[in-house]
Nucleic acid binder design. Structure first.
Length: 587
RNA sequence: CUCCCCGUAGCACAAUGGAUAGUGCAUACGCCUCCUAAGCGUAAGAUGUGGGUUCGAUUCCCGCCGGGGAGGCCA
């Protein structure tokens, strides 16, 4: 409806434009919603755009356009204002008509076909399964999930995907950490490396190993330590000490593999499965689910990584230096070339990442969206470079960088390192603040904006979270409808012309804009726009609720008002569904 | 050194290049014999700085100042 009106107006303007300025007939007609309601329902700056080409006063041109503007039943007035705007006012019944559209479309109101059923992949979270998700991951999860829902609602065919980093050193470290805790629990104690995973969940996994397999993995601590360079003194933080700690860790991993033989695979796999399952359930409780969990390891197993590097080599983008294979990413705008295969023959993380992107493109997505933490920004040139090098269409790739969430506790920054073990987990946050407030809090910020997450505020004053403001509007409508006691299906006959109060028209107007908000938000990959829209809608509703009574004596007026309230409720539900926030009936 | 994000009211955040820059918290004063006061009304309060592009700049471009973050043959 609202879209049709916009198109209708544009068509009228085009006719006027054709006769006033045939030479500039291709000027793009822009119609916008004025901020100030006194400027009408739609406004165009067409006359101002033409002013330069026609070398005439904008207001003069606007007047000519008005003279040529065809009459329409939807438009009650069109007038010149300001520097040369043309403001349109729509007929009241045109505006209130949206109420019936909302009620009949229900959950589908606002749904758009703008995406054209194109295939889009949204890859997000993709955290290493080496420990619990923390609040930083939560932001990526909330953004990715909301964005995915939004795109689906806007007509895209969405695949939500989690890239599982199940190959590589970090997973080895996790396996080792678990095993060392296991040994410790059986009395074979050696100094726990400071750069291994410290968290209690590691001890828990070790206990599970004992429960399932007893002492099968027990080895003497002395054997484990044999051949390792040993740890530097605890306090040292110089480069040499750091390097020695890493060497020590790698030596321990090598020892573990040697001493455990085939059992190493079990330890490794156990840790991976446990963490992945924990992650999956955590996200599910948060309302975040994925269609695909894509294994990094599978890229190696299927030979795609090797094939990918070979392909780059074939195309002449690889050279050898110091025994390593380098990808010439500088040829594609990167600041330096990057190693894809180390001297020791191991592929780098970057190599598997290229392979993963190749795979994404081979799966035929029209658009590939990567949601990355801001620390990956330096990564963009080399990945897009690799895509170009593979002769793929880099324009299909879109990287959305999510800025970090910085936690504040007692007015101080809290650390979020998974190594130190003193991070705040997503679980803790959800438990304290609640899933709804949590999702909404994340959604209320543009993704590329730094987020200061004040835990004390979120926890102690969660009732002031704007999510309750919107949910409360919804609950109020529910309450009114219950007391009204009628059947919503009968409201199709309501006489909406009775909705003449300015607040009522403002609400109807707001409802009519939902389509546009959905489409704009989807185009901008900005689900936060939905959140702000809902806040505005709820505000309009609360103001009306306090100013006017809905359940009045006059049955016709009552029905019209209940219909409007029900429409507000429906749009709140549709919007909140995109954001993954629930709408309780009562509060 | 290079790159990224950001400077809007006391605080936290909005604003497809448009008109009188919005919202919440905090502050002051009001509103429940009336559909849920997790609400509403009224008041006060802001675009870091200097240029440029434009009919028109919070928005785009350049410089400066200030804050935050990132840069590995790690993953």
């Amino acid at each position: 409806m609202a879209q049709d009106l916009k198109q209708e107006l544009a068509a009228l303007l085009q006719q006027a434009l054709n006769s006033v300025a045939p030479t500039a007939a291709t000027t793009a007609i822009q119609l916008e919603r004025p901020r100030d309601p006194s400027h009408g329902d739609f406004a165009t700056n067409l006359a101002m755009q033409l002013a330069k080409a026609l070398k005439r006063n904008p207001r003069e041109i606007a007047q000519q356009l008005l003279n040529e503007l065809p009459v329409s039943p939807f438009v009650t007035s069109a007038e010149i204002a300001g520097a040369g705007f043309i403001n349109f006012r729509l007929a009241a019944d045109t505006k209130t008509g949206v109420v019936k559209t909302v009620l009949s479309a229900g959950p589908d109101f606002g749904r758009s076909t703008a995406g054209g059923r194109q295939k889009v992949q949204v890859e997000f979270v993709s955290a290493n399964p080496t420990g619990p998700l923390h609040v930083g991951h939560g932001r990526g999860a909330a953004y990715g999930a909301s964005l995915s829902s939004l795109l689906a609602f806007a007509g895209w065919d969405v695949t939500r995907e989690y890239y599982v980093n199940d190959a590589g050193r970090q997973m080895d470290i996790l396996g080792l950490s678990t095993w060392l805790r296991y040994l410790d629990q059986h009395g074979e104690t050696l100094p726990f490396p400071p750069n291994a995973y410290q968290g209690d969940y590691v001890r828990e996994m070790a206990r599970q190993m004992t429960a399932a397999h007893g002492t099968q993995f027990l080895r003497p601590a002395a054997d484990v330590l044999a051949g390792t360079p040993g740890l530097p003194e605890a306090g040292r933080s110089d480069d040499a000490a750091k390097q020695q700690r890493e060497l020590h860790l790698d030596a321990l991993i090598a020892q573990a593999k040697a001493l455990l033989g085939g059992d190493w695979h079990y330890v490794h796999q156990h840790a991976l499965n446990e963490q992945l399952e924990d992650c999956r359930s955590d996200l599910k409780e948060f309302g975040v689910e994925f269609e695909v969990w894509y294994s990094e390891k599978s890229l190696y197993d299927t030979g795609l990584v090797a094939r990918c590097v070979a392909l780059l080599e074939q195309k002449g983008h690889i050279y050898l230096q110091n025994g390593a294979k380098w990808f010439r990413s500088t040829a594609f705008g990167d600041e330096k070339d990057r190693v894809v295969q180390r001297e020791n023959g191991l592929y780098t993380y970057f190599a598997s990442d290229i392979a993963y992107h190749l795979n994404k493109f081979e799966r035929g997505f029209d658009k590939v969206i990567n949601i990355w933490g801001a620390d990956h920004h330096g990564y963009i040139p080399r990945v897009t470079g690799a895509i170009k090098a593979l002769d793929l269409d880099a324009a299909k790739l879109h990287v959305a960088l999510v800025q970090f969430a910085v936690l504040y506790r007692n007015g101080q920054k809290a650390s979020m390192s998974t190594r130190s073990g003193e991070f705040v987990t997503l679980r803790e946050l959800r438990k304290e603040v609640g899933n709804d407030a949590c999702r909404f809090f994340y959604a209320l910020r543009k993704s590329d904006q730094h987020l200061d997450f004040d835990l004390d505020l979120a926890k102690s004053q969660s009732n002031e979270n704007p999510v309750y403001y919107i949910q409360y509007a919804h609950a109020r409508v529910c309450s009114v409808i219950t007391q009204w006691g009628g059947d919503l299906a009968d409201l199709g006959d309501a006489d909406l012309a009775l909705l003449s109060h300015p607040r009522e028209l403002a609400i109807a107007n707001q409802l009519g804009q939902f389509h546009e908000v959905v489409e704009t938000a989807a185009r901008e990959l900005a689900p936060h726009m939905i959140a702000f829209y809902l806040k505005d809608l709820a505000a309009e509703f609360h103001a009306w609720y306090n100013a006017e009574r809905m359940l009045v004596e006059d049955a016709a007026l009552r029905d019209a008002r209940v219909a409007l309230a029900a429409a507000v409720r429906q749009v709140i539900r549709n919007g909140m569904a995109i954001l993954g926030v629930s709408c309780p009936q009562t509060m």
